[in-house]
Design a protein around this nucleic acid. Structure first.
Lengths: 194, 194
DNA sequence: CACCCAAACGGACCACGGTCCGCTTCTATT
DNA sequence: AATAGAAGCGGACCGTGGTCCGTTTGGGTG
C-alpha cells in the first residue's frame, strides 16, 4: 500500500533517470571544454552520452537549461569559496575588503565563463542559485557595513554593472581594460556605501 | 568616368534595395505589433513584404538584426524626446531632475519593449545608437552636476540596473513593483552623485 | 515470482534561422 | 539606345533546437 504524501514531495527520481542525468551532464561538460560551447549540438551530446535526444530535453528542458546545468557546477565551486574559502573573498577579512574582493572575483568569473553564460541565457539567470546567492551575500556585507536603505535594490544596483551584457559592451566594444573596470567598480561601491 | 572616392564612402544604396528595405521594415513592424514578436518568423516577414528570404538576410544579417532595426525606430523617437522634448526629460529642467526623469523613462521604456529588446539580443545592444547615446547623455548630466571621477564608467554603473536582464529578474522573479524600482534607482543616483 | 502501470526512453519528425548560387535588374558609360 | 558588369534577388536547401508518441523499463504490490 502506498502512503499518501502529505506535502507534495518533489517526486523521487528513478534509477535509470539519475544515471542518464549524470551521463548527459558529464558528456556535455566534456564536449563543452573540448570543442567550445558554440560547437556543441544537442544531438552530439545525446550521442556522446548514449541516450536519445528526447531524454536530454526531458531532463534539461532546453539547450539553455543544459548549459545552465553545466555552468552550475563551476558556479557552485565559486560559491563555496565565497562562503568558506580563504580571505579576503572568504570570511575573515573586514567587510569592505570582502565586498571589493567579491566584485573583482565575480567580474573575472563572468568574463571567464562568458560563452557558457551566454549560452545558458535566461535559464542561467533564473536559476535560483546564481543571482540570488550573490544578491544575498552583498546584502549581508552591506548590512555589515552599516548601510541603510532598500538593501535588496542597492545590492542589485551594485551587482548590475558586473552582469555579462554590461561587461561585454565595455570590454569588447569600448576596449576598456579589466583593471579599469575593477577600479571603476570600487569607486561605485565606495560612493554607495558612503 | 568614375571619380575615385577619397575616403571609403558607405557605398550608395541601389533604388530597388532601398525600396525593399522599406517594405521589409514596414512588414516587420506591422507583423510584430499585430501578432507579437515571438510569432513572427523570417519567412512570414519575407512573404508579407513580397521579397525573398535571402533579401531579408542580406539587408539585416539576422533575425536579431531585423528586430534591432524595428526597435530602432521607437528608440529614435525616444532619443528625440530626450534631446528636444519637454522638461524634465528634455532640456530646461535642472540637471538632477533631468537625470531622474531620464532613468524613469528609460526604465519604463525598457520594460515596455521587453520582448523586442530580447529578440534584438546582442544586435540591439551593440547598435551604436542605443547604449552609446544613453551613456553619453548621462555623462553629460553628471558633468553638469559637478561629479568627478571616471565618468564613462560611472555612467555605465548607473545605467546598468536599468538593463532589461536586471529589470526582468526583479519584476518577474521577485515581483518588485515598478515604483519601488524607480525609488531605488533614485537612491542609487543620489548616493553616486553625492 | 508474476504482474502492472507510471515513468522514462528514443528517434522520426517538424519548424525556423541561415546559406548558397544561378538568374534578374539596376545604373554608369559611351 | 546599347552594353556590360556589378549589385541585388529569391527560393531550394541545410543544420539544429524542440516535440511527439509508440515502446521499454523500473520497482512497488499480491
Amino acid at each position: 500500500m502506498k502512503l499518501l504524501p502529505l506535502a507534495d514531495e518533489p517526486a523521487p527520481e528513478r534509477a535509470d533517470a539519475a544515471r542518464n542525468r549524470e551521463a548527459i551532464l558529464a558528456a556535455a561538460l566534456r564536449l563543452v571544454e573540448s570543442r567550445g560551447v558554440g560547437c556543441v549540438t544537442m544531438d552530439t551530446v545525446a550521442t556522446e552520452a548514449g541516450v536519445g535526444k528526447g531524454t536530454l530535453f526531458r531532463r534539461f528542458d532546453s539547450r539553455e537549461g543544459l548549459m545552465a546545468a553545466v555552468l552550475n557546477t563551476s558556479e557552485t565551486q565559486w560559491q563555496a569559496s565565497v562562503i568558506g574559502g580563504p580571505p579576503p573573498l572568504g570570511p575573515g577579512a573586514p567587510a569592505m575588503e570582502r565586498l571589493l574582493a567579491f566584485g573583482h572575483s565575480r567580474l573575472r568569473t563572468n568574463l571567464t565563463h562568458a560563452s557558457l553564460i551566454e549560452a545558458a541565457g535566461r535559464a542561467g539567470q533564473r536559476s535560483v542559485a546564481a543571482m540570488s546567492f550573490a544578491n544575498m551575500h552583498v546584502r549581508y556585507l552591506l548590512r555589515e557595513l552599516g548601510v541603510d536603505g532598500d538593501l535588496p535594490l542597492l545590492a542589485t544596483a551594485i551587482l548590475a554593472p558586473l552582469e555579462l551584457v554590461v561587461l561585454e559592451q565595455q570590454v569588447e566594444r569600448e576596449r576598456i581594460p579589466v583593471e579599469r573596470l575593477e577600479a571603476g567598480w570600487d569607486d561605485l561601491v565606495r560612493r554607495v556605501v558612503g
